[in-house]
Simulated assay, not measured.
Amino acid sequence: MARNQKAKAKAEQVKGKAKEATGRVAGDKRLEAEGRTEAARGDARQAKEKAKDTFKH
């Protein structure tokens, strides 16, 4: 299960960074902000999974 969550976190980070870059190129501030938010959510999810792994072992 943890592997699945880690993959989701990484996918969310990548998707967010792509949205942010697209928004920056297109000049769309809303899309850029949405991408930053999504990437941050992926970062938080990844940090949570790493913390769970630390306490698991």
Score class of each variant (00 low, 15 high):
13 Q>E: 10
55 F>W: 03
7 A>S: 03
28 D>M: 15
29 K>H: 07
5 Q>C: 00
21 A>W: 13
51 A>N: 06
8 K>Q: 03
54 T>H: 07
36 R>E: 13
49 E>L: 05
54 T>L: 11
30 R>V: 14
15 K>G: 05
32 E>K: 09
23 G>M: 13
45 R>H: 10
52 K>L: 06
49 E>S: 04
53 D>S: 02
37 T>Y: 12
53 D>C: 00
47 A>E: 04
5 Q>R: 01
41 R>L: 10
18 A>V: 14
11 A>C: 01
37 T>S: 10
26 A>G: 08
37 T>P: 07
1 M>Y: 00
57 H>M: 02
41 R>V: 11
49 E>M: 05
6 K>Q: 01
38 E>P: 04
13 Q>C: 06
6 K>H: 01
10 K>Y: 03
9 A>D: 00
1 M>V: 00
17 K>P: 05
38 E>F: 07
57 H>V: 05
56 K>L: 04
54 T>E: 09
35 G>Q: 13
10 K>W: 02
33 A>G: 09
17 K>N: 14
38 E>L: 15
36 R>F: 12
20 E>F: 11
57 H>P: 03
53 D>Q: 02
36 R>H: 13
37 T>G: 11
7 A>R: 06
55 F>G: 03
41 R>I: 13
46 Q>S: 06
25 V>K: 15
43 D>T: 07
7 A>V: 05
15 K>D: 12
20 E>C: 11
11 A>G: 04
39 A>Y: 10
1 M>G: 00
57 H>G: 03
37 T>R: 11
7 A>N: 03
14 V>W: 08
48 K>P: 06
27 G>F: 13
50 K>L: 06
49 E>W: 03
16 G>W: 11
43 D>H: 09
56 K>V: 02
55 F>R: 02
21 A>I: 15
10 K>C: 01
34 E>G: 05
19 K>F: 13
41 R>M: 15
15 K>H: 12
39 A>N: 09
41 R>G: 06
55 F>N: 02
30 R>S: 12
33 A>H: 08
46 Q>I: 06
31 L>D: 10
16 G>K: 10
48 K>G: 04
26 A>P: 11
22 T>K: 15
44 A>N: 11
16 G>E: 11
38 E>M: 12
12 E>H: 07
7 A>P: 03
28 D>R: 14
51 A>Y: 06
4 N>L: 04
28 D>S: 14
17 K>E: 15
9 A>H: 00
